[in-house]
Design a protein around this nucleic acid. Structure first.
Lengths: 332, 332
DNA sequence: ATAGCAAATGTAACCGATTACAATCTATAA
DNA sequence: TTATAGATTGTAATCGGTTACATTTGCTAT
């Protein structure tokens, strides 16, 4: 494989001229520029970007850490990050951690060893919680929550949850069940806070038995809903903390001969693409996945440039979407 | 940031000894090993992998090209590729091309410029079709079809389609509609071939009006199904070429008051996770996404090692799964 | 014609690791 | 004791770019 010296020889100029012709053409005369370009064509030169990265001590790559790439919401955010990164000349190193701290560390190491210039973390909890994220690493958190620290972009989970529950209450619901994420997951905490705020504002007393713990998977939604089906005084509505669990819950309700939304209303969160196509289509909260990814990437680039974002927080608006899975409670 | 020379000075040995202590400890005495390790701890040394990559002319990264990462089937395959890559010490550079050849070229360039050691392409068509893939690039194709060339791993699309249609015929269906992908998509070609084989084997004449062209999106399934709803002699079953279109089609049928499967049976392809949870759950074909990703990564590594895989093809078995969206045709 | 300045170009050091080769040390056998 | 093989270590070249600094060229103004 030919290198810059071969090109220089072929063109009859110095290596410095070739280098400049490629990275800063304004500094080179038109004559030399032509000679260099035809020499490049002739010897079939491709610059060795590894050498360039090495010299400039920048890899032009960023790591994106995600607990599960098959989660449709996450993959939307990642697509947007990748798009922005590509525009800016950066590569995206995909890090599917499956929630294993060891794998996370492995990827953080890539930044420490200069294979990546920074990290975007897609996950709810504080990045410092599980292990010490070295302070000198450029890191942006997306999809975080109120307790997340460091530069971050997120939506107002509490407020969004509150609009969902407010809406259910406005329809006339008083017994509103919840299928939550894992109890200590910060999204769960924030969204539950919104639920409680809403109940309190309406003067409805909180009933602990109406909260079923899931883990954001369809399967857990399916199981958690069974618990409501078995109750003598079932809730008339169920607030699910994501769409997957809502879809699972609807499945269970149908199997028990309970109609949605006539007998029980169900709401989701995230607005994954199936939310629009399931039966009934899901009343949910649209997270601006695209905007979140783009913004996170832009913040990370600023961080890499050396800007001090410290605790800069971007809280994006989420949209509440009413579809067919909610209705006024049945009178009986 | 400290480098190998700092460590050498601190440990009182040469840089070569430090380098060997890290990459080939057997060649170094226990005494030196200890000195080196404590020196590393003392100066907080992290090896510069960029320098290592540069020197060894290997980036230990592979590009994964995918038309759309939000497609749940693709993201499953990618997760498996990433898992395997991580195990083998490789990083995955995500390339979401959105089907734009220009973006694809951009990523191929990364391999040419030594930023990645090879490429895995997730897409049905021949990688050489749209533009010339340089011959010296290590490239493996996944999710390809019968006409794909080069090293590849795929399932038997024709055979799988045939088992689906054979099953529908065995239930008693004679008018079987198809919602296909784009006409020139090789998956469409292979799966349609399976459909035709099946009809022929059963002595059923092919009716061109029973094939509706979609594009593998839910939305297109939704629209294509309308065309069947408008027919005076509707098909009694619809073979959809992926799950998304099947889900869209079911949605449309329901809206027209047509019951699935009582009035019309519907089948999908891919077995995305939602296929199990939609209503009715989908009879479909399970592609071994995990196995495909793992195998593709292993093949790529062998290719990078210099092995000649030429036209090695791995055709994996796909499993036909019967769920609730299919039944015997209604008698009337 | 020539001084003066800017533009263009060239030379060579440099980034941080790896590794060929040479030099040194250690242990065993004669 | 000394020769010698084998183990360990050190020196310095090397990978392919970038860029500081020195030098040359080209042009304008006097």
């Amino acid at each position: 494989m030919s290198n810059i010296r071969d090109v220089a020889r072929e063109a009859g100029v110095s290596v410095a001229t070739v280098s400049r012709a490629l990275s800063d053409p304004d500094k080179v005369s038109q004559t030399s520029l032509n000679k260099v370009h035809s020499a490049i064509d002739k010897v079939g030169y491709r610059p060795n970007m590894l050498a360039r990265s090495f010299r400039s001590a920048k890899s032009y790559a960023v790591v994106v850490l995600v607990p599960d790439i098959t989660n449709p919401f996450f993959s939307q955010v990642i697509r947007s990050i990748e798009d922005r990164a590509q525009q800016k000349g950066y590569a995206v190193l995909l890090g599917d951690t499956r929630g294993v701290p060891e794998r996370e560390k492995e990827y953080i190491r890539r930044v420490e060893t200069r294979l990546a210039d920074g990290v975007i973390q897609l996950r709810p909890d504080d990045p410092n919680r599980r292990f010490e994220m070295p302070a000198d690493i450029a890191c942006v958190n997306v999809c975080g929550c109120e307790s997340t620290s460091g530069p971050r972009v997120r939506i107002d989970n509490r407020g969004s949850a509150r609009s969902v529950v407010d809406y259910l209450i406005s329809l006339g619901h008083r017994r509103i069940g919840v299928i939550s994420g894992l109890k200590d997951n910060p999204h769960t905490v924030d969204r539950l806070a919104g639920y409680l705020e809403s109940l309190e504002a309406a003067g409805i007393e909180f009933d602990k038995s109406l909260v079923a713990e899931g883990d954001f998977t369809t399967w857990s939604g399916l199981n958690s809903a069974k618990q409501f089906c078995a109750m003598p005084d079932k809730p008339t509505a169920i607030f699910c903390m994501n769409d997957e669990m809502a879809i699972g819950a609807i499945q269970t309700l149908k199997q028990h001969g309970i109609r949605v939304p006539e007998d029980i209303s169900v709401t989701g969160f995230d607005d994954i693409s199936y939310a629009r196509y399931c039966d009934p289509s899901l009343t949910t909260v649209t997270q601006p996945a695209e905007e979140m990814g783009k913004l996170a990437m832009d913040m990370l680039l600023r961080l890499i440039e050396g800007e001090d974002l410290a605790q800069e927080e971007n809280v994006l608006p989420a949209e509440f979407v009413i579809r067919k899975s909610t209705a006024i409670p049945r009178k009986d």
